[in-house]
Amino acid sequence: MQYDREIKLYIKRILMVVIMIIILFTGVTLLDDRKYIFCGIVIVLAGCVMMYHKYARVYGTIRRNVIIAVLTTMGVVGRCIFAPIPGFKPVTAIIIISAVYIGEESGFMVGSLIALVSDLVFGLGPWTPFQMVAWGLIGYAAGMKFIADKKNNTFVMIMVSAAGGIFYSLFMDVWSVISITGVFEIKKYLYYIGTSLPYMGIYILSNIIFMLLLKNSIGEKLERINKKHRIF
């Protein structure tokens, strides 16, 4: 019984990888000029699906699911409240603070689901998978052990949130380059980074401000719930 399930799981994983390789291969060989967009979206979506698969298998207990749903709601509401000010959002700060407490895979889940649900409000599009992975990776990185161990050190947390803002801006610039010019060239990429520098500044500033404002309030509650129930 146990053995059968293991084999099924491996078959599923191998199938996923094979399907992804086939799609990428046909994309690269058949399409000439716009293959970057297609393959980019495929890679990003496949990464998300694999991460979800791993989460559902390893960590998918009901208590953890509910906590992730609560944190996701907080992020989505935060993005909606600050919608009128472009770039000034508490989302990255909320993702980093929660990921530090709930671990790397769950951090990925919180980040990517915030992107998915809030895009239902602001409009879905081909940029949604990119946003999901950008915020998900921020959550994953913040949940890693060497960062999570220093969660009480304010300076480290400020540096992490600044790095999160820089990473988000650089990652989404990849999307704007391949969507607007069709191909990925370093020269155009650098040009886009130059034009989005003010946004990067706003991201970093807002991340640091919200990190300082929300760190104690979210962290205290997560710590307390963990002490009480041993979830994470």
């Binding site: 989460y55 998918g60 699911n65 509910v66 992730i68 749903a69 996701t72 709601t73 689901l113 649900v117």
Partner: peptide, 21 residues
């Protein structure tokens, strides 16, 4: 149809938004 965990979390989020409001 793909993952019941994600669907559960998503439907909870949809319910939580008006509740918290």
């Amino acid at each position: 149809n793909i993952s019941s965990d994600i669907a559960l979390i998503l439907s909870m989020v949809m319910r939580f938004i008006p509740l918290y409001k």
